[in-house]
Design a binder for these strands. Structure first.
Length: 490
RNA sequence: GGACAGGUGGCCGAGUGGUUUAAGGCAGCGGUCUUGAAAACCGCCGUGGGUGAAAGUCCACCGUGAGUUCGAAUCUCACCCUGUCCGCCA
């Protein structure tokens, strides 16, 4: 989220940044107009509040002295003030919410050293390590051919149970997934000083807002939300208690009692809504239950949400090995075979919370930590700097690490390391104190895969495949796999 | 999931409608005293925002949101969270 005062102070820089993101138009002026109107309202409202506070104090004193005449005259004086203030406060809420909604969907501004460009073709290669075919193999097979031939990778049964984009791993492949997680965590904790964390995998909307998945990318997420399929449009109505202002969802029809029992207390509204709306019409603004994390970045970064950290204790470095859940909406037809693009996959994530002056250095360090895994596994890869058009919503600069897949004859993303600057910190309200003990503004946040475990397994299968159909186990992984040196047919 | 009890500054904790401008204590910072330290005493000690060149001044915040009232930490409603007991489970 962007700081309105920064936009006010340097409108041109903001406009320039948006333009690099491919956003033209009057956004900056719209924001500044909203901001100006809001501040004018605040000035007016606060004057009224100050007068009310003074009068109320005097009324209290008068009543204590039993001076009813004075109290009465004061009451008359502020008679009209109450309504004006309440109207002003309502207006303030609406204007602040409108401004927040405008800001909430604006992406981060790219850092100065990020290359301009519209898509991945404009990304800039930073480093590359040698790549080629596995020794003795002319036509390398793809990972799913290898895994299925080994009898340890089963997409058909996964489809039977869960549908497309899920997989069963069995035997040594299942063990290798676990081994990779343990190996990566050990490197990051022992060599790079990250603290291992086992975080929640289900989070509330606030957390998803903090890291930038919401409100713009809801369709990419899985949730435990009651869907419109579960509740018919005529079966529920939003009820606003006009006296108390409380919001409730009222169920009707034959299933009312059942629905009430199932969903009672699980709804709340995240913005005002008119009386009598149906549940269907307001479902986008109903929040209930949980979201499934698309990456451990969400619970690891939000670990410090709403906190003021001691700057001397930064950077804070966290790592976790978790399953990740992605709806992959809009990915129809892409990577439909194999384990490259799944609804559920496991990943080791790296998150750093830093002061502003540390974040650029930390970004390089984090990318090195992720690369270290590939070096130890002896997997060919390259690092690219993403161009402005290929970066994610919250990032101001991103390095992608791409691993070489001989079966696909292509580099595929296996890690993405982003410096988000103060962007997520503002959304989460995370700040730090400087050496003088003063609040010195938002922290910087960084996140990176260290690495995507499923894709690492893919890379090992394709790069370590043997002419006899077996797969060698990288030497650093062997201690994690009961000392085995290769995977053979089960 | 049910019942009951709770949620107040960095921490503990008082406060059930009006000099509360959130008491008091602890921790922290500065000072007096002291050869030094401790003790004692004095002072400072939250966050966000409006306005202002600044000093300052004003507004909001007692889990969150809304409401009642001239006035709410205090009363009402909903939600979130914590504790204890019961139930269920891993």
């Amino acid at each position: 989220m962007h700081d309105v005062r920064a936009i006010r102070d340097d409108r041109e820089a903001f406009v320039r940044g948006l333009k690099r993101r491919g956003l033209a138009g009057t956004l900056a002026d719209d924001i500044l107009a909203q901001d100006k109107a809001l501040r004018e309202l605040l000035t007016r409202l606060q004057t009224q509040q100050a007068r009310r506070n003074d009068a109320s104090k005097l009324i209290g004193q008068a009543k204590q002295k039993k001076d009813e005449a004075l109290a009465k005259s004061l009451l008359d004086e502020v008679a009209g003030l109450k309504e004006a203030i309440q109207a002003g406060e309502a207006e303030q809420r609406l204007m602040e919410e409108a401004l927040k909604q405008t800001l909430a969907v604006i992406p981060n501004i790219p850092a100065d050293d990020v290359p301009d460009g519209a898509d991945e073709n404009a990304n800039v290669q930073v480093t590359a390590r040698g790549f080629g075919k596995p020794p003795g193999i002319n036509n390398p097979r793809q990972h799913f051919e290898i895994g299925e031939a080994l009898g340890q990778m089963d997409f058909e049964r996964a489809a039977k149970v869960s549908g497309a984009r899920f997989v069963y791993l069995k035997g040594d492949l299942a063990k290798m997934e676990r081994a990779l997680g343990a190996f990566m965590l050990d490197i990051h904790t022992d060599k790079f000083g990250y603290t291992e964390v086992s975080p929640p995998a289900l989070v509330r909307s606030n957390a998803m807002f903090g890291t930038g998945q919401l409100p713009k990318f809801e369709e990419d997420l899985f949730s435990t939300k009651a869907s419109e399929e579960l509740i018919g449009p005529e079966e529920a109505t939003v009820r606003l208690d006009s006296q108390s202002g409380a919001v409730a969802v009222e169920f009707k029809g034959d299933r009312a009692a059942d629905l009430q029992r199932t969903f009672k207390g699980k709804f709340f509204l995240n913005r005002p809504v008119a009386l009598g709306n149906t549940l269907k019409s307001i479902s986008p603004i109903i929040e209930n239950s949980f979201w499934l994390i698309p990456t451990a970045e969400v619970p690891l970064t939000n670990y410090v949400a709403d906190e003021i950290l001691n700057g001397a204790e930064l950077p804070l470095r966290l790592t976790a090995f978790t399953p990740c859940f992605r709806a992959e909406a809009g990915a129809a037809g892409k990577d439909t075979r194999g384990m490259i693009r799944m609804h559920q996959f496991s990943k080791v994530e790296l998150v750093s919370i830093t002061t502003p002056d540390q974040s650029a250095t930390e970004h390089e360090r984090m990318t090195d930590a992720a690369q270290e895994i590939l070096k130890k596994l002896d997997l060919a890869h390259r690092v690219v700097t993403l161009c402005t058009g290929d970066m994610g919503f919250s990032a101001q600069k991103t390095y992608d690490i791409e691993v070489w897949l001989p079966g696909q004859n292509a580099f595929r993303e296996i890690s993405s390391c982003s410096n988000c600057g103060p962007f997520q910190a503002r959304r989460m309200n995370t700040r730090y104190r400087n050496a003088e003990g003063k609040v010195a503004g938002p922290v910087h946040t960084l996140n990176g895969s260290g690495l995507a475990v499923g894709r690492t397994l893919v890379a090992i299968l394709e790069n370590y495949q043997q002419p006899d159909g077996s797969v060698a186990i990288p030497s650093v992984l062997q201690p994690y796999m009961s000392g085995k040196t290769k995977i053979t047919k089960a």
